Simulated assay, not measured.
Amino acid sequence: MEIRINMDGKVALVTGAASGLGRATAIKLASAGAKLCLVDVDETGLAETSAIIGDSGGVAIVQVADLTDPVACSAPVDHAADTFGRFDALCNVAGLIYMAKTPDMPVEQLQRTIAVNLTAPFLLSQSAIPHLLKTEGAIVNVASSAAFLGEAYAAAYCASKSGLVGMTKAMAMEYAKQPIRINAVAPGGMMTNIATNMKFPDDADVELIRRYTGLRGLVEVDDVADMVCLLASDAGRGYHGACINIDAGITAG
């Protein structure tokens, strides 16, 4: 069965769009016909993503925003809606991880992790929901397999992603009787900037790390982007309050 993702005439916002999964998601949404608002703190990366979309005939605007700043989270949705006249999908893709032994993690890293991975999606959703109720739109949050199993040296990250899954389900229940869909995807490790720049403690126990690296290797970024786009589109109309694990079996047992 072929699933056709049609976003013609619709407007989507993607955070973390400067690279990795955010870029892949934005490009796929644009290829499905969506007009894009690209959000990231990396201005150069945003320009590159916008150029890729433009070269393929798509339409994208960029909004440089530091999602650790609550004030910065309030503007992108309204900017997209004002620019394009409507708003149909919020894709909260941006994320970060710091690896550290729990007693050694600086408070600043803990706060940044929670701010980007949990607080920003909440604040962006606050701005998006009034628009999405009008268009019968969707929110898609990118969680992680780390929401479902403990990962040594990643207590803050696990907490933020577990919180994001809980938030997704709570919001879905809050709007169970209204025309809006709120879902999440939970990828395993992917070859993105997050994975490339990940640094473990110097004396980390490799055996503990192997417990959550999986037997089948990394997950393909495009596979996760496909699911995000499905959930953002009308083709995902049967999903509400779901969290789809795409982790090559890491959380199976």
Rank of each mutant, 00 (worst) to 15 (best):
R86F: 13
D88I: 09
D88Q: 08
A89D: 06
L90A: 06
L90N: 05
C91V: 14
V93Q: 01
A94L: 04
L96F: 01
L96H: 01
Y98H: 14
M99W: 11
A100W: 06
K101A: 14
D104F: 11
D104T: 06
M105F: 05
V107C: 14
V107D: 14
E108P: 05
E108R: 15
L110K: 12
Q111H: 15
T113W: 05
I114P: 06
A115E: 08
A115Y: 02
V116R: 03
N117F: 02
N117M: 10
L118C: 05
A120H: 00
P121K: 07
F122K: 06
F122V: 02
L123K: 06
L123H: 00
L123S: 05
L124A: 04
S125W: 00
Q126C: 07
H131N: 01
L132P: 05
K134H: 07
T135S: 15
E136C: 12
G137H: 13
A138K: 11
A138L: 09
V140I: 13
V140D: 02
N141Y: 02
S144M: 09
S145E: 14
S145A: 13
A146F: 02
A147S: 15
L149D: 04
L149G: 08
G150Y: 00
E151F: 00
E151W: 00
E151M: 13
Y153M: 07
